[in-house]
C-alpha cells in the first residue's frame, strides 16, 4: 500500500512516500510562485528517486499554504493537523509539537488520545520564524547550518533585543561593529529565537514528550536553547524534521486507503 503526502510551504515544498509503515522516499525543494508547479516538481523528484510513477500512489493528501492548488491530491488537511499526525506517528508518546517553519511558528498540544487539544501560531511577525534565522545568518555572512553549530563555541552569548526582526538586525550590526565574536552572536540569536518560540510552547501548556519539527529544528543551537527555556528535553526525531508535515499528510493518505 503506497501512500503519499505533499506539503507546499511558503519557502519549501516537501513530499513523502510511504509504503505501509516505511518511508520509501522524500524530497525538499524551494517553493516557486506557483504552488501547483512546486508540488508537481517535488512529487516527480520523489517518485523518480523511489523508482515509482504517479500511478503507483494509492492516495495522496496535500497540506501547507498551497494545498488547494496541488493538482494530484485526493484530500487536503491543514498543516497543524499534519504536523501533529506526523510527529505522533514517529513518536507515539509525543504531547507537544513545536513547529518552526520559514514564515511561521506553531505550538500544538495533544491529549492522551493524540487529538489536538490546543494550538497556537505566532502572529504576523518574522521574529520567531525561520526567516529570522535566515536574515541573521546572512547578516553574519554565515550559512544557515553554521549558525547552529557555532553556538556551541560561544563563551559569552549576547543578549539580543529580538521582539522584531528588523530591529534585531540593527542590534546585531551594533555588535558586529564592536567586534563581538560571531559565535557569541550566533548563540545570542539562537537563544533569542528559542525564547520567542518557548513563549508559544508554554502558552499551549507544554507537556512531555516534546518534539520539534520544521526546518529550524535542524539548528542544534536553537534546539538546545529551547531545552533550557522549557526546562524539558526535546526528543529528537529519527527523520528529517522538515518533512514531518508531508509525512503526516502521507499517514492520513494511508489511513484513508485503509478505511476504504
Amino acid at each position: 500500500m503506497i501512500a503519499a503526502g505533499c506539503d507546499v510551504g511558503s519557502l519549501t515544498t516537501k513530499a513523502v512516500i510511504l509504503n505501509n509503515t516505511r518511508i520509501i522516499g522524500h524530497s525538499i525543494i524551494r517553493s516557486s510562485f506557483d504552488p501547483g508547479k512546486s508540488a508537481s516538481e517535488v512529487m516527480d523528484k520523489t517518485l523518480h528517486a523511489s523508482g515509482l510513477t504517479m500511478g503507483d500512489i494509492g492516495f495522496c493528501v496535500g497540506t501547507g499554504y498551497g494545498r488547494d492548488r496541488i493538482p494530484f491530491v485526493g484530500k487536503t488537511v491543514s498543516e497543524i493537523t499534519c504536523h501533529a499526525r506526523g510527529a505522533r506517528w514517529l513518536l507515539p508518546s509525543v504531547r507537544t509539537i513545536i513547529d518552526v517553519g520559514g514564515q511561521d511558528c506553531k505550538a500544538i498540544r495533544l491529549d492522551a488520545q493524540g487529538n489536538i487539544a490546543k494550538f497556537i501560531t505566532n502572529d504576523k511577525c518574522a521574529s520567531g520564524t525561520g526567516r529570522f534565522l535566515e536574515v541573521m545568518a546572512k547578516l553574519l555572512g554565515l550559512e544557515l547550518e553554521d549558525l547552529g553549530k557555532l553556538s556551541s563555541q560561544s563563551r559569552n552569548p549576547i543578549t539580543l533585543a529580538a521582539t522584531c526582526t528588523a530591529w534585531s538586525q540593527a542590534e546585531v550590526i551594533v555588535h558586529l561593529h564592536t567586534n563581538t565574536p560571531k559565535a557569541d552572536l550566533a548563540a545570542g540569536i539562537n537563544d533569542a529565537m528559542a525564547a520567542r518560540v518557548a513563549i508559544l510552547a508554554r502558552s499551549v501548556g507544554c507537556e512531555k514528550d516534546v518534539c520539534m519539527t520544521g526546518g529550524v529544528a535542524k539548528n542544534i543551537g536553537v534546539l538546545e536553547a529551547m531545552e533550557r527555556h522549557l526546562d524539558m528535553p526535546i526528543r529528537r526525531l529519527r527523520v528529517d524534521p522538515q518533512i514531518i508535515g508531508a509525512l503526516g499528510a502521507a499517514v492520513f493518505a494511508r489511513e484513508k486507503m485503509t478505511l476504504s
Binding site: 533585543a161 540593527a170 542590534e171 551594533v174
Partner: peptide
C-alpha cells in the same frame, strides 16, 4: 522607538 522597561525591544547600546 524603544521600550523604557524592556531591553529586548532595543538595547541600551542602540
Amino acid at each position: 522607538f524603544a521600550d523604557a522597561f524592556d531591553d529586548r525591544v532595543a538595547s541600551w547600546e542602540s
